Amino acid sequence: MKKKILIHSVLICFASYGQEYSFIPDSLKLLPIQELVKKEPPADFEPVYYENGTKASFKDVLPLIMEQKLMPQMFVAENGEYKALVVKSLLKNEDIRIVYDNIPESLEKQGYSYGNPDSDTIIINIMGGPENYLTTYGFEARYSITGGIDENNYFLINMRESQTLQPEETEKEEISWEQATNYNEKTTQTLFELISFFKSQKKKVYVVGGSYGSFVALNSLFKHKNIADKYLLFVGRLDMTEEVSEAYSKGFKAKFESDGITPQIGEKSDNIYTVNMRKIASAISRDEKYTELLKDIDLSNLIYIYIENDQSVGKLTQHEIEFLESKNAEVISVKGEHGNWIEHLKMGLQLLSDK
């Protein structure tokens, strides 16, 4: 079990760096993370260092790796033998930025980027959740390992949801419905501004969103029209079931039975953060019927992948499916669970490049 947790954590903490430590011999090479996840270091492995060169023990750093607070970097000999492990702190929120020449200051802090800035294709990812933190190296893992992306061919951005800028605001006290709505409006505006900027740079722009991220993309399509080159959306809804969205608006637990149709409403969470994230999720779906709002929008550049009996957001109704098909979107049904939609990312990205 520990090994499975470590492998998952390593994937989330993915990064690719060259040799940058004076205390690591130049003869050692950084092992690609894809190889490290295949073979866990032994419990008594040494030496282990923090990034400043201070020695540590594997048993002490392992819990922090699993909590995604430290990123493991294994250095190996020419024959592949493990020789030294360096654990690196993940980026602080205030350090996150989009590294791209001439990007406006107002947009620089609106995401985390990696890949090739000179590529002619930009991928803007919108996280699920919602959450009040922005994934950095985990975003790289998702696309480079699970999605099979060659970072030399794309410039990828994990876009901020607006509540990630001041995460403490959604942890201290319950937010109002107006605040939840404002968070969504700012997030949708950020997506519009990022697309607009990169289009002005003569780039192709692909938008990818899963779960809550798909709602943000739909909201942008409604408010700012179809301005990206292509959209790839996963496991969302166009017309959210009112009973579920209403429960979320009050901070209540809500999901669907195994049929993906019948709502299950639970109790209100006693965790302020959970209540606030549910409110934000509801505020972008409760009063929005996207089959009506998007009726005049061309969706022929949209790929929509949904889980057949999704217990988190519910299955797409026949009306929703027929609407997407009538707008010339490509609609794909897959099996599985809502949280496992990432397993279909590689397929979706391939379809995106072919469409």
Rank of each mutant, 00 (worst) to 15 (best):
K88I: 03
P104I: 09
Y100W: 00
Y112L: 11
I65G: 02
D101R: 15
A77S: 15
K55M: 03
E108F: 00
K92W: 00
E51R: 01
L90E: 04
D95W: 04
I98G: 06
E105P: 07
A84V: 03
M71E: 11
K83H: 05
I96Q: 04
L70G: 03
I96H: 06
L70F: 09
P63C: 10
R97D: 04
P104E: 05
E81N: 14
Q110T: 07
K55A: 03
V99H: 13
I103F: 08
L91Q: 06
L62K: 14
I122E: 02
S113P: 05
Y100L: 00
Q68T: 14
T121Q: 14
K69G: 12
M71R: 14
E105R: 14
D60L: 08
Y112W: 14
S119P: 09
E108R: 11
Q73V: 00
S89C: 07
Y82M: 15
K88H: 05
G80D: 10
Y100I: 00
L85W: 09
Y114M: 08
Y49D: 04
K69L: 12
M71C: 12
L91F: 03
D95V: 03
F75P: 02
M74I: 08
P72D: 05
E81S: 14
E81Q: 14
P117V: 13
L90M: 08
Q73H: 06
V86W: 09
T54F: 02
N93G: 12
L64A: 08
S119A: 15
G111T: 05
M66A: 09
K92F: 00
L91K: 06
G111Y: 09
E51Y: 02
Q73I: 00
Q73C: 00
R97H: 09
M74S: 01
E51C: 00
F58C: 10
G111D: 06
K92H: 02
E51H: 01
D120C: 11
I65R: 04
K88Y: 01
L64V: 02
E105H: 13
N102S: 12
P117C: 13
E78L: 15
M74R: 01
Y112P: 08
I98F: 07
F75K: 04
K55I: 03
E108I: 02
A56D: 14
N52L: 00
I65T: 02
G80C: 11
E105T: 13
S89T: 08
A77L: 11
K59Q: 13
L62A: 06
I122G: 03
V76Q: 05
E78D: 15
N93E: 11
E78I: 14
Q68I: 08
T121F: 13
L70K: 11
L91D: 01
K88S: 03
V61I: 15
Q110S: 12
L85Q: 09
L70E: 04
I96A: 05
S106R: 15
K69M: 11
P63F: 12
A56Q: 13
A84T: 05
G111L: 10
L85K: 09
D120A: 15
